[in-house]
Amino acid sequence: MKSPCIDICVFDGRTGWCKGCGRTKDEIRAWKKSQPHQQRRIESDLPRRLAKLTPMAKPIRPDQ
């Protein structure tokens, strides 16, 4: 499974989530070694996480 990283690695101090992709530092480090079902579980939670970040912290997609 492709990484959800969009090369905006700034972490929210309150949640610990990356403001670009929504993952934690531990999830990012473990991504390549994670099982597909673990990656899918994390990826399915990312929209919820990103929505909880402040509006200024929402991801900026490079293609926008």
Rank of each mutant, 00 (worst) to 15 (best):
K32F: 00
T24H: 09
D26S: 00
G22M: 04
T54K: 12
L53N: 05
C21Y: 13
R61G: 01
F11G: 00
Q38H: 06
P62F: 09
K32P: 01
K52R: 14
R41S: 15
A30E: 13
Q39S: 02
K25E: 15
I8W: 04
S34D: 13
K52I: 07
R61K: 07
V10M: 04
W17Q: 03
R41L: 11
K32L: 14
T54E: 15
Q35S: 14
G20T: 06
R23V: 09
K52Q: 15
D12S: 07
G16L: 08
K2D: 14
G13V: 07
P36S: 07
R48H: 09
P36A: 08
K2C: 04
Q64S: 08
P62H: 05
W31G: 04
K32A: 03
T15L: 06
L53W: 09
P36W: 10
P62L: 05
M1E: 08
I60P: 00
F11V: 15
E27R: 03
H37Y: 13
A57D: 15
Q35R: 15
L46K: 10
D7G: 00
P62Y: 02
R40A: 13
Q38Y: 01
A30S: 09
P36N: 05
P62M: 04
R61M: 00
L46N: 12
P55Q: 03
L50N: 01
R23P: 01
K2H: 09
L50M: 10
A51W: 07
P4D: 01
G20F: 05
V10H: 04
L53F: 00
L50F: 12
M56A: 15
G13T: 11
D63F: 10
K25Y: 01
P62C: 02
D26H: 04
D26Y: 09
Q38A: 00
P4E: 12
D63P: 02
H37F: 13
Q39H: 00
A51D: 15
I6R: 10
K2T: 13
R14W: 03
T24D: 06
C21Q: 09
I8F: 04
E43T: 10
S3P: 12
R29N: 12
P62D: 07
I6K: 00
Q64T: 12
C9T: 12
F11Y: 07
G22L: 03
C18T: 10
T54R: 14
V10Q: 08
S44M: 03
D12E: 07
K33M: 11
E43S: 11
S34T: 09
W31L: 10
I28P: 01
C18R: 14
D26C: 04
P36G: 02
L46M: 11
C5W: 11
M56S: 03
T54I: 02
A57Q: 15
I42C: 11
R41C: 03
C9W: 07
A57F: 05
H37V: 12
L53Y: 07
T54V: 00
R29I: 11
C18A: 12
I28F: 04
V10T: 09
G13K: 12
R23D: 11
E27Y: 03
P59K: 05
C21E: 11
K32R: 10
R23W: 07
D26L: 11
P59A: 08
S34N: 11
P36F: 06
P62S: 10
T54P: 08
I28E: 08
